[in-house]
Amino acid sequence: MKVQTMKTMLLHHHAWGRLLSGVVLGLMCAQPSWADPSGTPPLGAVFHDCALCPQMVVVPAGSYLMGSAETELGREIYESPQHRVMILKPFAVGRFEVTRDEWQICVAEGPCQAQSSRTGMGAAMIPGAGRLPVVDITWEQASQYAQWLSERTGQPYRLLSESEWEYVARAGSQSAYAGGDTFVAGRANVSPAMTESDAVPAAWHVGSFAPNAFGLYDLQGNVWEWVQDCFHDNLAGAPADGAAWTERCTHAESHMARGGSWKTPSVQTRPAHRAWAHGSEADIGFRVARALTP
C-alpha cells in the first residue's frame, strides 16, 4: 500500500509539472500588483511581483529591543544580551509562509526539489493541501527558492535576517508575545492552543488565524521559519542594523529558525525565542523578504 501511494504521488507531481511548464514563464513576467507610478508600494500595501509569486506586505522602518528581558517568563540565556536594532528602510515581507503550491511552481521550473514523500502522507488528506506551508526542506533549498524568485522577477528576494524576523513578529510590541505578556490560546496553531474538537496534528493552512499589526500571518506557531543567519549561541556581537549575521558562527553548518510550530509549547512562539537546525525537519518552513529600493 505504501509503494502504491508513493507511486501515485510521483505521477501527480509529474503531471503537475507538465501542466505548469507551459504557463509559468508568462505568469512569472506579469507586472507587480500595485499602481504607484514611482514603482514603490506604500506602507502596508499587499502586492505580488507576478501572478504566481508569494504575496508581500510592505512593513515600515523602525527600531526595537532584540532579545528577551531578564524578567520575561520562559526566557532562555541564548536570547541575550538584549540590544537595540534599527531597521533603516521599509522592506517587503511574505504575507504568509511559502506554500506547497508556490514551492511546486519552482519544482516545475527545475531549481527546487520535490518534497520528500513523508511530508505528503498526512497533509495530502487535508482539503486545499496546496495552501499548507511547505516543510521538510533544508535551509539551502529555502535559499534556492528565494534565488529563483529573484532571477524570475528581477527583484532581490531572500530569507529574512534573524533580527528582521523578530522585528516583524513583534510588529511594534516589546511584550513577551506580540499580543501581550501571556499567550492567548486560539490565536495560533501551537500545541497548547489545540482542542480535541478542532486539533490537527500538523500544520494548518496559511492565514488560518488573524494577522499581526503589520498584516503578516502565522509568525506565531504553525511551522518554524528558516532565516538567513548561521547559528550563534547568544546575541553578543549581533548586528544592530537588521543585517543577517553570517560571520563568526558557533556552528556554520547550522542555521537559525524562528516562531515555533504546531508541535511546540507556546513559550517557544515568543518573538525573542531562538532555535536552530542543521537539516530539514517536518515542521520547518520559511517566508521570503525583499528590498524595495536599491
Rank of each mutant, 00 (worst) to 15 (best):
P37F: 00
A69N: 12
E76T: 07
V46L: 11
I77F: 10
A51L: 14
G44D: 06
C53G: 11
T40A: 02
G39D: 03
L73F: 09
M66V: 08
R75N: 06
I77V: 13
A69V: 04
H48S: 13
G67W: 05
L73D: 12
Q55H: 14
A69C: 08
G62W: 09
P60C: 08
G44C: 07
R75Q: 14
V46M: 06
S33N: 05
V59P: 04
E76L: 14
Q31G: 01
H48M: 10
P32A: 10
P41Q: 02
E70N: 11
T71I: 06
G39S: 03
S33F: 05
P42V: 03
L43H: 02
A61Y: 11
R75I: 13
R75F: 06
S63T: 15
T71G: 04
F47Q: 07
P37N: 01
H48R: 15
Q55N: 14
G39P: 01
Y64R: 06
L73N: 11
P37V: 02
L73K: 14
A30F: 00
L65K: 12
T71W: 12
V57P: 03
M66S: 12
S38R: 03
E76N: 09
T40H: 06
S33E: 09
V46Q: 08
A45Q: 07
S68P: 10
P42S: 11
G74H: 10
Q31V: 05
P54F: 07
C50L: 00
